[in-house]
Write a protein that binds this DNA or RNA. Structure first.
Lengths: 196, 196, 196, 196
DNA sequence: AATGAATGAGCCTTCATTCAT
DNA sequence: AATGAATGAAGGCTCATTCAT
């Protein structure tokens, strides 16, 4: 009995299972069998819907990046001034759901994957670029262009640094502390121009 | 070709080969065979001197952390004021030799390894703790204690963030830009107290 | 070539191949590859169906012990008096099929395996216990209880001794001679009580 | 500083270490390294004195068989009548020192080794033949020749059976019970002829 | 659509053995 | 005499992938 339209359902289940499995094992050494089992299907079917393990990992990566982007957009919808928009971006990137251990572990593996996969590298590049340009666009209303770019780079580094620390230190700054650190940095950059 | 006292020589060669191989392949998926071959010996010998793959990876990790610490100490020797000492620490952590692609790639794999190896986790913890306390000790001469701690956390996150970006973006901020970003952050924190 | 329900078929083939291979090489140093090849499949599949080498060896052991038990039961079905039942047990244990060189070689390796495998030890223990209690139950109709136990121990030792000799001496007593030796021992024990 | 006459000392140490190591690990899977270490020397030296692992195992086997033979001879020295001599042989074979766990484990491995080594097979053959003819010679003074041979075979099987049970059952009949079982068998055989 | 049977390459590890010193 | 450095073959096991059903 051929079921139709299973493709998106199966793919979704596999992507979720991939993230969950990476989160649980804490490494890229997840097997297709483990993922498929968690998703409630055979390993053969996983290949059928994704064509290979790398494709599955990339799909999981895309899902996480897409979620992040959605969060950014949602946050931006309620922001009106450039400053509010910068705050919205920071908070989206440090959103609670990104601190989900599964997601944090997945990020780490994406970095590793990017070392050997052009597509993974491209995806991470897109993420970094998007964060950077989002920040610059809004900061340039508040700061000189070079200063805006400088600040965007600093914010990006801080966000990634906080993130990576969460991947391994269980007593790393929590979400609220993290936001405070980053916003404080932003405030200082903004106050710098005003002081001069 | 001396036949006695080879142990330290072989271990050194293997550690170097491990870092080089991780750097070249960009992943933890380096085989003992590859490493041994690069070090100019058989895989059996690698096991003989290290007892296993994990031990080799941990030894490589220790080597990198030790190098970093040495650099910090060397830099501190020429620093006299607390401010100079903080600068020395930052610069040691962002030293050119840490930007060696092999070293950067190794760092990344260490993060991954730490997810599953208690010893790797411990080593990273020691690194983070040492950086933090080094910074706090010196910053507390310049700032109120809570502010010093806050700043140390921010600096640590920034350093790690810059580092991680280097592991994947070949057009990430270079060494000089990186130092500038971090020192600027430090300056702002220091100026904050003076402005009040 | 059916593609479903292969598990019992494959397992059976592997167990048979294990016994045959042990019989042919005469040691526990049979490789999974050899066994799998003899069973007409890849080594990977052997692991798939058994999970590991030890499991395969244990399964072969169980098979031999089960066969022995079946033989005992079959023989007992045609026995009516206690004496007939004791004879039936002896003959089952010295049955021709147990003198199959493969089976004899396997026994030997089981003894070795039992030195390091709790499960193998348990299986041999069950075998020895079953033989003993089977003998005691029936002998106690013919002899005083302590005498029955003593005789059961003697019979057990003799049976095992004959067996082990077969594992290495090709001119050890053959099946008929063996049965005669054991039955003679039994007769003497039984006549002892009558003479008194 | 070349030491002379080390050969017998080293060989003795290695043989003892071999038996001890087999006894401790309970299997033939002892490595030359383990044995050499236990004997207080390098693995290279072990090879130098024995030429290979198999030679070492065979030497250990010879040592145990020689010990057994010495014990038989010693016991026979105090025996005068044929019956005493048969008793002496039985007791030598079931001597306490043969029940040393190390020795028992070694025996088992010798059986296994005999499956693949012509020399090991020969040694075991010599042992069995010697035991058999020793018994027959003395029994033939007490029984008809065929009956003596029959009894010798039965005694041999019993002795080996008791032995093998000790290799795996820790609650097997102890030394005294074992002697009793075997002597009882002997008594019955002897009484058989008298009764007729 | 879905299964799981099947393969085979590859990895880590162990070990007997050789050899330079 | 003695060491332990060094090799290389082999084994158990895993796993992505393919394929017949």
């Amino acid at each position: 009995m051929p079921k139709v339209g299973m493709k998106p359902i199966r793919r979704k289940a596999l992507i979720d299972a991939t993230i969950a499995e990476i989160g649980q094992t804490g490494s890229l050494d997840v097997t297709v069998g483990q993922i498929a089992k968690r998703a409630g299907m055979s390993s053969g079917l996983a290949h059928h819907y994704f064509g290979g393990k790398e494709q599955m990992l990339l799909a999981a990566m895309r899902q996480i990046l897409t979620n992040l982007q959605l969060r950014v957009r949602t946050n931006l919808r309620h922001a009106e001034t450039p400053l509010q928009r910068v705050h919205a971006i920071i908070e989206a990137n440090l959103d609670a759901c990104n601190f989900d251990p599964d997601v944090v572990a997945s990020w780490l593996t994406f970095y590793v994957q990017a070392q050997n996969s052009a597509e993974a590298q491209r995806l991470l590049h897109v993420y970094a670029r998007r964060l950077y340009s989002n920040l610059v666009v809004n900061l340039s209303h508040l700061l000189e262009q070079p200063h805006a770019e400088h600040t965007a780079r600093g914010l990006g580094a801080m966000i990634d640094g906080i993130y990576i620390r969460h991947a391994l230190e269980h007593n790393a700054p929590n979400r609220d502390q993290s936001v405070e650190i980053v916003r404080d940095y932003l405030d200082l950059q903004l106050s710098k121009i005003r002081d001069q």
